Amino acid sequence: MKAYIIANGTFPKKKFLINELKNAPFVIVCDGAIKHIDRLNIRVDVIIGDLDSIDKKLKEKYFKKIVYVPDQMSNDLSKAFYYGLNLGFDEFIILGATGKREDHTLGNISLLLLYTKSCKNIIMKSDYGEFEVVKTPCKISSVKGQQISIFCFDSRIKISSKNLKYPLKELSLPLLASATLNEALEDNFYIRTNKICELLIYKKYL
Score class of each variant (00 low, 15 high):
174 P>Q: 10
145 G>I: 11
98 T>Y: 01
133 V>Y: 03
140 I>R: 05
95 L>D: 12
158 K>N: 11
117 K>E: 15
120 K>C: 02
119 C>Y: 02
135 K>P: 00
168 L>R: 07
157 I>Q: 07
118 S>E: 13
118 S>W: 05
137 P>L: 08
133 V>N: 03
130 E>S: 10
94 I>N: 08
126 S>A: 01
99 G>H: 09
94 I>Y: 07
125 K>R: 13
165 K>N: 10
120 K>G: 02
125 K>H: 11
131 F>R: 04
170 E>M: 04
115 Y>I: 11
108 N>I: 01
112 L>G: 01
174 P>N: 15
115 Y>E: 10
142 S>Y: 02
103 D>T: 08
115 Y>A: 10
113 L>Q: 09
111 L>E: 14
173 L>Y: 12
129 G>V: 12
108 N>W: 06
126 S>P: 00
174 P>F: 11
168 L>P: 03
105 T>Q: 09
107 G>T: 11
135 K>Q: 13
141 S>I: 09
145 G>A: 06
165 K>Y: 14
105 T>R: 02
153 F>A: 12
113 L>S: 08
143 V>Q: 14
100 K>Q: 06
116 T>H: 01
109 I>N: 09
99 G>F: 05
154 D>Q: 09
104 H>A: 06
100 K>N: 12
156 R>A: 09
171 L>R: 15
112 L>D: 04
148 I>N: 02
92 F>K: 02
135 K>T: 15
147 Q>K: 14
113 L>C: 00
155 S>W: 04
172 S>K: 09
120 K>E: 14
118 S>P: 00
141 S>V: 06
109 I>H: 08
165 K>F: 12
141 S>L: 12
108 N>S: 07
105 T>I: 07
108 N>K: 11
170 E>D: 11
119 C>G: 07
133 V>H: 02
151 F>I: 15
134 V>W: 01
105 T>D: 03
157 I>L: 14
144 K>V: 13
